[in-house]
Computed example of a mutant assay.
Amino acid sequence: MNNIFMPKPYKILEIVHETNLEYTFRVEVDVKAEHGQFFQISIPKIGEAPISISAMGDNWMEFTIRKVGKVTNEIFNLSPGDKIFMRGPYGNSFPVNKYKGKDLVVIAGGTGVSPVRSLLKYFYDNSEEIKSLHFIAGFKDENSVLFKDDLNNFKTKFNTIYTLDKKKVDGFEVGLVTEHISKIPFDSFDDYNVIVVGPPVMMHFTALELLKNGVTEDKIWVSFERKMSCGIGKCGHCKINETYVCLEGPVFNYTKAKDLLD
Protein backbone atom coordinates (compact mmCIF):
# COMPACT_ATOMS: atom_id res chain seq x y z
CA MET A 1 0.00 0.00 0.00
CA ASN A 2 1.32 3.45 -0.93
CA ASN A 3 1.96 5.89 1.90
CA ILE A 4 0.06 9.05 0.92
CA PHE A 5 2.24 11.09 3.27
CA MET A 6 5.49 10.00 1.61
CA PRO A 7 7.10 12.77 -0.49
CA LYS A 8 9.18 12.13 -3.60
CA PRO A 9 12.53 13.69 -4.51
CA TYR A 10 12.56 16.11 -7.45
CA LYS A 11 15.54 17.85 -9.03
CA ILE A 12 15.94 21.60 -8.76
CA LEU A 13 16.58 23.02 -12.22
CA GLU A 14 17.07 26.70 -11.43
CA ILE A 15 16.90 29.15 -8.53
CA VAL A 16 16.02 32.83 -9.01
CA HIS A 17 16.72 35.28 -6.18
CA GLU A 18 13.62 37.49 -6.36
CA THR A 19 14.45 39.45 -3.18
CA ASN A 20 16.62 38.91 -0.10
CA LEU A 21 13.81 36.86 1.44
CA GLU A 22 12.08 35.23 -1.55
CA TYR A 23 13.59 32.75 -3.99
CA THR A 24 11.86 31.01 -6.88
CA PHE A 25 12.75 27.35 -7.33
CA ARG A 26 12.13 25.70 -10.72
CA VAL A 27 11.70 21.97 -10.16
CA GLU A 28 11.58 19.11 -12.65
CA VAL A 29 8.29 17.24 -12.14
CA ASP A 30 6.35 14.27 -13.49
CA VAL A 31 2.92 15.38 -12.23
CA LYS A 32 0.28 17.81 -13.44
CA ALA A 33 -1.46 20.53 -11.45
CA GLU A 34 -3.95 23.37 -11.87
CA HIS A 35 -3.62 27.09 -11.19
CA GLY A 36 -4.01 27.77 -7.48
CA GLN A 37 -3.06 24.36 -6.11
CA PHE A 38 -0.22 23.76 -3.66
CA PHE A 39 2.39 21.17 -2.73
CA GLN A 40 3.86 20.14 0.58
CA ILE A 41 7.59 20.77 0.17
CA SER A 42 10.00 19.23 2.64
CA ILE A 43 13.53 18.54 3.76
CA PRO A 44 13.95 15.10 5.41
CA LYS A 45 14.33 15.26 9.21
CA ILE A 46 13.63 19.01 9.16
CA GLY A 47 9.96 19.40 8.23
CA GLU A 48 7.61 20.47 5.46
CA ALA A 49 5.61 23.51 4.44
CA PRO A 50 2.70 24.19 2.05
CA ILE A 51 3.85 26.19 -0.98
CA SER A 52 1.65 27.40 -3.84
CA ILE A 53 2.64 26.85 -7.46
CA SER A 54 3.84 30.16 -8.93
CA ALA A 55 4.36 28.94 -12.51
CA MET A 56 4.22 25.72 -14.51
CA GLY A 57 5.24 24.36 -17.86
CA ASP A 58 6.17 21.13 -19.61
CA ASN A 59 7.69 18.88 -16.94
CA TRP A 60 8.51 21.74 -14.56
CA MET A 61 6.90 23.87 -11.88
CA GLU A 62 8.04 26.91 -9.96
CA PHE A 63 7.60 27.60 -6.27
CA THR A 64 8.33 31.03 -4.82
CA ILE A 65 9.36 30.55 -1.22
CA ARG A 66 9.80 33.10 1.55
CA LYS A 67 12.52 32.50 4.12
CA VAL A 68 10.57 32.45 7.37
CA GLY A 69 11.60 29.41 9.42
CA LYS A 70 13.69 26.27 9.81
CA VAL A 71 12.24 24.45 6.78
CA THR A 72 12.61 27.36 4.40
CA ASN A 73 16.04 28.19 5.84
CA GLU A 74 17.20 24.72 4.83
CA ILE A 75 15.56 24.96 1.40
CA PHE A 76 17.49 28.18 0.76
CA ASN A 77 20.74 26.25 1.25
CA LEU A 78 19.95 24.08 -1.79
CA SER A 79 21.46 24.59 -5.24
CA PRO A 80 20.46 23.67 -8.81
CA GLY A 81 20.94 19.92 -9.26
CA ASP A 82 20.02 19.17 -5.64
CA LYS A 83 16.86 17.25 -4.80
CA ILE A 84 13.88 18.73 -2.98
CA PHE A 85 11.11 16.56 -1.57
CA MET A 86 7.46 17.19 -2.49
CA ARG A 87 4.04 15.63 -2.33
CA GLY A 88 0.91 16.89 -4.04
CA PRO A 89 -0.73 18.69 -5.70
CA TYR A 90 -3.38 19.43 -3.10
CA GLY A 91 -6.45 21.59 -2.81
CA ASN A 92 -8.77 23.04 -5.39
CA SER A 93 -7.92 25.60 -8.07
CA PHE A 94 -9.09 28.84 -9.60
CA PRO A 95 -12.17 28.17 -11.80
CA VAL A 96 -10.43 29.20 -15.02
CA ASN A 97 -13.33 28.21 -17.28
CA LYS A 98 -15.61 30.54 -15.31
CA TYR A 99 -13.26 33.43 -16.08
CA LYS A 100 -12.96 32.82 -19.82
CA GLY A 101 -14.73 35.24 -22.14
CA LYS A 102 -15.27 37.73 -19.29
CA ASP A 103 -13.46 40.61 -17.64
CA LEU A 104 -11.13 39.62 -14.82
CA VAL A 105 -9.67 41.72 -12.02
CA VAL A 106 -6.73 40.36 -10.00
CA ILE A 107 -5.63 42.13 -6.82
CA ALA A 108 -2.58 40.78 -5.00
CA GLY A 109 -0.50 41.97 -2.09
CA GLY A 110 3.14 41.06 -1.49
CA THR A 111 3.77 37.33 -1.66
CA GLY A 112 0.12 36.98 -2.66
CA VAL A 113 1.32 37.59 -6.21
CA SER A 114 2.87 34.10 -6.18
CA PRO A 115 -0.37 32.02 -6.11
CA VAL A 116 -1.89 34.06 -8.98
CA ARG A 117 1.25 34.27 -11.12
CA SER A 118 0.65 31.01 -13.03
CA LEU A 119 -2.92 32.12 -13.83
CA LEU A 120 -1.70 35.54 -14.98
CA LYS A 121 0.94 33.91 -17.18
CA TYR A 122 -1.72 31.61 -18.66
CA PHE A 123 -3.93 34.53 -19.68
CA TYR A 124 -0.88 36.46 -20.88
CA ASP A 125 -0.12 33.58 -23.27
CA ASN A 126 -3.83 33.10 -24.13
CA SER A 127 -5.15 36.66 -24.03
CA GLU A 128 -7.82 35.86 -26.60
CA GLU A 129 -9.58 33.75 -23.98
CA ILE A 130 -10.39 36.74 -21.78
CA LYS A 131 -12.19 40.00 -22.47
CA SER A 132 -9.88 42.14 -20.34
CA LEU A 133 -7.64 41.76 -17.33
CA HIS A 134 -6.98 44.43 -14.71
CA PHE A 135 -4.13 43.66 -12.32
CA ILE A 136 -3.33 45.56 -9.11
CA ALA A 137 -0.18 44.43 -7.28
CA GLY A 138 0.97 46.02 -4.05
CA PHE A 139 4.34 45.70 -2.33
CA LYS A 140 5.82 47.12 0.87
CA ASP A 141 8.76 48.83 -0.88
CA GLU A 142 10.96 48.52 -3.97
CA ASN A 143 13.11 45.87 -2.29
CA SER A 144 10.14 43.53 -1.90
CA VAL A 145 8.93 43.57 -5.51
CA LEU A 146 8.56 40.07 -6.97
CA PHE A 147 8.71 38.87 -10.59
CA LYS A 148 9.96 42.13 -12.10
CA ASP A 149 10.24 40.72 -15.63
CA ASP A 150 6.70 39.35 -15.47
CA LEU A 151 5.35 42.65 -14.16
CA ASN A 152 6.88 44.45 -17.13
CA ASN A 153 5.47 41.87 -19.55
CA PHE A 154 2.00 42.07 -18.03
CA LYS A 155 1.93 45.81 -18.76
CA THR A 156 1.89 45.05 -22.48
CA LYS A 157 -1.39 43.09 -22.40
CA PHE A 158 -3.11 43.86 -19.10
CA ASN A 159 -4.33 47.04 -17.44
CA THR A 160 -1.86 47.23 -14.56
CA ILE A 161 -1.45 49.25 -11.39
CA TYR A 162 1.67 48.54 -9.33
CA THR A 163 1.92 50.28 -6.00
CA LEU A 164 4.27 50.61 -3.02
CA ASP A 165 2.92 51.27 0.45
CA LYS A 166 4.55 54.65 1.09
CA LYS A 167 7.34 55.60 -1.31
CA LYS A 168 7.02 56.93 -4.87
CA VAL A 169 9.27 55.04 -7.27
CA ASP A 170 9.26 55.19 -11.06
CA GLY A 171 6.70 52.73 -12.43
CA PHE A 172 4.80 52.47 -9.15
CA GLU A 173 1.92 54.31 -7.55
CA VAL A 174 1.82 55.01 -3.80
CA GLY A 175 -0.59 53.52 -1.29
CA LEU A 176 -2.26 50.27 -0.37
CA VAL A 177 -4.07 48.30 -3.06
CA THR A 178 -7.41 49.31 -1.54
CA GLU A 179 -6.69 52.92 -2.48
CA HIS A 180 -6.63 52.04 -6.19
CA ILE A 181 -9.72 49.84 -6.49
CA SER A 182 -11.88 52.83 -7.47
CA LYS A 183 -9.80 53.11 -10.67
CA ILE A 184 -11.19 49.80 -11.98
CA PRO A 185 -14.10 50.49 -14.41
CA PHE A 186 -16.54 47.97 -12.93
CA ASP A 187 -19.49 49.83 -14.45
CA SER A 188 -18.18 49.08 -17.95
CA PHE A 189 -18.06 45.30 -17.39
CA ASP A 190 -20.89 43.06 -18.58
CA ASP A 191 -19.73 40.03 -16.63
CA TYR A 192 -16.62 39.76 -14.52
CA ASN A 193 -14.80 38.13 -11.62
CA VAL A 194 -12.34 39.46 -9.05
CA ILE A 195 -9.48 37.48 -7.48
CA VAL A 196 -7.94 38.70 -4.23
CA VAL A 197 -4.82 37.12 -2.72
CA GLY A 198 -2.60 38.39 0.07
CA PRO A 199 -2.35 38.52 3.85
CA PRO A 200 -5.70 37.94 5.61
CA VAL A 201 -6.06 41.57 6.71
CA MET A 202 -5.37 42.74 3.15
CA MET A 203 -7.98 40.37 1.70
CA HIS A 204 -10.52 41.42 4.34
CA PHE A 205 -10.26 45.15 3.62
CA THR A 206 -9.89 44.65 -0.14
CA ALA A 207 -13.14 42.68 -0.19
CA LEU A 208 -14.89 45.42 1.80
CA GLU A 209 -13.62 48.04 -0.62
CA LEU A 210 -14.81 45.97 -3.57
CA LEU A 211 -18.26 45.74 -2.03
CA LYS A 212 -18.27 49.54 -1.61
CA ASN A 213 -17.54 49.80 -5.34
CA GLY A 214 -20.57 47.71 -6.25
CA VAL A 215 -18.96 44.30 -6.61
CA THR A 216 -21.24 41.55 -5.34
CA GLU A 217 -19.91 38.84 -3.02
CA ASP A 218 -20.38 36.03 -5.56
CA LYS A 219 -17.97 37.72 -8.01
CA ILE A 220 -15.07 37.71 -5.52
CA TRP A 221 -12.60 34.82 -5.18
CA VAL A 222 -9.85 34.55 -2.58
CA SER A 223 -7.03 32.12 -1.90
CA PHE A 224 -5.36 31.60 1.45
CA GLU A 225 -3.19 29.13 3.28
CA ARG A 226 -4.16 28.52 6.88
CA LYS A 227 -2.02 26.14 8.93
CA MET A 228 -2.22 23.48 6.21
CA SER A 229 -0.18 20.52 7.40
CA CYS A 230 -1.24 17.11 6.10
CA GLY A 231 -2.91 18.42 2.92
CA ILE A 232 -5.56 15.68 2.93
CA GLY A 233 -7.96 16.69 5.70
CA LYS A 234 -6.68 14.29 8.36
CA CYS A 235 -4.77 16.39 10.89
CA GLY A 236 -7.35 19.14 11.37
CA HIS A 237 -4.86 21.99 11.73
CA CYS A 238 -6.47 23.99 8.93
CA LYS A 239 -10.05 23.34 10.01
CA ILE A 240 -12.28 26.39 10.46
CA ASN A 241 -15.67 25.42 11.88
CA GLU A 242 -16.56 22.50 9.57
CA THR A 243 -14.33 23.55 6.67
CA TYR A 244 -10.98 21.93 5.89
CA VAL A 245 -9.04 24.61 4.02
CA CYS A 246 -6.65 22.07 2.47
CA LEU A 247 -9.55 20.14 0.92
CA GLU A 248 -12.20 22.75 0.11
CA GLY A 249 -9.63 25.49 -0.54
CA PRO A 250 -7.28 27.18 -0.79
CA VAL A 251 -9.53 28.95 -3.34
CA PHE A 252 -12.90 30.07 -2.02
CA ASN A 253 -15.71 32.21 -3.30
CA TYR A 254 -16.19 35.15 -0.96
CA THR A 255 -19.72 34.06 -0.14
CA LYS A 256 -18.03 31.37 1.96
CA ALA A 257 -14.64 32.94 2.57
CA LYS A 258 -16.13 35.90 4.45
CA ASP A 259 -16.82 33.54 7.36
CA LEU A 260 -13.38 31.90 7.18
CA LEU A 261 -10.91 34.80 7.00
CA ASP A 262 -9.22 35.55 10.31
Rank of each mutant, 00 (worst) to 15 (best):
V113G: 01
S114R: 04
P115T: 06
V116S: 09
R117F: 05
R117Y: 02
S118C: 02
S118G: 02
L119H: 02
L119N: 00
L120S: 05
L120Q: 01
Y122I: 13
Y122F: 13
F123D: 10
F123G: 06
D125C: 03
N126S: 06
E128P: 00
K131N: 08
K131F: 01
K131P: 00
K131Q: 08
S132G: 06
S132T: 05
S132L: 04
S132V: 07
L133F: 06
I136C: 08
A137L: 10
K140S: 06
E142A: 11
N143D: 09
S144M: 14
V145S: 13
L146C: 02
L151P: 14
L151E: 05
L151A: 10
N152V: 07
K155F: 11
K155G: 10
K155D: 09
T156N: 12
T156H: 00
N159H: 10
T160R: 01
I161T: 11
L164V: 11
L164C: 14
K166M: 01
K166S: 07
K166V: 04
K167L: 06
K168N: 07
V169C: 00
V169L: 03
D170R: 11
G171F: 05
G171E: 13
F172L: 06
V174Q: 03
V174L: 13
G175H: 13
V177E: 11
V177W: 08
V177P: 01
T178A: 01
T178R: 04
E179K: 15
E179D: 13
H180N: 06
H180L: 10
I184H: 03
I184R: 00
P185I: 09
P185N: 04
P185R: 08
P185Q: 08
P185C: 04
P185T: 05
F186T: 12
D187Y: 07
D187F: 04
S188A: 11
S188V: 10
F189S: 05
D190K: 15
D190T: 06
Y192K: 03
Y192S: 03
Y192T: 00
Y192P: 00
N193Y: 12
I195T: 01
V196M: 02
V197K: 11
V197T: 03
P200H: 10
P200Q: 00
P200G: 10
V201W: 05
V201I: 14
M202E: 05
M203A: 07
M203E: 11
M203V: 12
H204T: 14
H204S: 13
F205V: 14
F205T: 15
F205P: 04
T206L: 12
A207S: 14
L208P: 02
L208G: 05
L211V: 15
K212C: 03
K212L: 12
K212R: 15
N213H: 15
G214D: 15
G214S: 13
G214Q: 12
V215E: 07
V215T: 11
